[in-house]
């Protein structure tokens, strides 16, 4: 099927471009590591306190790292005319938006998930919470990329898009932050984590279905 082949090619191209340009994907990861490492330095080596706040710290840092790399998601294609051609292509713009978000997650969300346990150890996260941390990030970071993609499409062509993007998207990230951090917190406290993870899964399903549609609508406005 040529539609599937186009979609995969677009994802592969974006991953290659993201890795070759290096900057954005690597910057997001380095930001995540440094931001979480600042907390033990700022709060002092009090193990219980760090374990208590680890979930929230990791989730806030993941959310901000995602936001940091999000502004350029469509900007390059918008500036060099690629977006015009993608909008005129045979692949529906919804799938174009989904492909670009998928590539973004592969080069930012996935590496972040890999490093998160290390940063958890640095924050004295108890052993039994590591599995829940991984699960919450696996369900949450794709949603961050999907919702952030809508914001990135909406701010195309505006000046100071980065600030606008933060104002637009951070409130929408709040439910993800609340349930993601609460899941890790519950694991630390020995409470049940299932409802939090189910809610994260529900939000992911919502973001996966509505995100590309809203993103494509915003892209259509941008190429006018």
């Amino acid at each position: 099927m040529s539609g599937a082949r186009s979609w995969v090619r677009l994802v592969r191209r974006d991953v290659r471009l993201g890795l070759s340009a290096g900057s954005d994907a690597a910057a997001a990861l380095v930001f995540f590591v440094i931001a979480t490492a600042l907390f033990p330095l700022g709060l002092g080596p009090e193990a219980n306190l760090l374990a208590r706040i680890a979930g929230g710290v990791l989730w806030v840092a993941a959310l901000l790292a995602n936001l940091l790399s999000m502004e350029r998601l469509f900007a390059g294609d918008f500036e060099d005319g690629t977006l015009d051609l993608l909008a005129l292509g045979t692949l529906p713009l919804e799938l174009v938006a989904l492909a670009k978000v998928t590539a973004h997650w592969l080069i930012t969300g996935l590496p972040l998930m890999v490093v998160a346990p290390l940063m958890g150890a640095l924050l004295n996260l108890p052993g039994e919470a590591f599995g829940v941390l991984a699960a919450s990030l696996a369900l949450g970071t794709p949603s961050l990329s999907l919702l952030g993609g809508v914001g990135a499409a909406l701010v195309l062509g505006t000046r100071r898009g980065g600030v606008l993007l933060a104002l637009l998207i951070l409130p929408i990230f709040v439910p993800l932050l609340v349930f993601g951090a609460a899941a890790v917190d519950a694991a630390v406290m020995g409470l049940t984590v299932r409802p939090h993870l189910l809610l994260l899964g529900g939000l992911f399903a919502l973001a996966l279905t509505l995100g590309p549609i809203a993103g494509a609508a915003a892209l259509r406005q941008a190429v006018r």
Binding site: R5, R9, G81, L88, T90
Partner: peptide, 30 residues
């Protein structure tokens, strides 16, 4: 339709062949 606008829509870090091959794939060529 095929559209060639003001902008060349090229990715400078990709090779000439990759740039054109990408658009061939996106146009549904197998």
């Amino acid at each position: 339709l095929a559209y060639v606008g003001h902008q060349d829509a090229l990715k400078l870090s990709l090779t000439v062949g990759d740039n054109l091959g990408f658009w061939a794939t996106m146009a549904g060529r197998g």
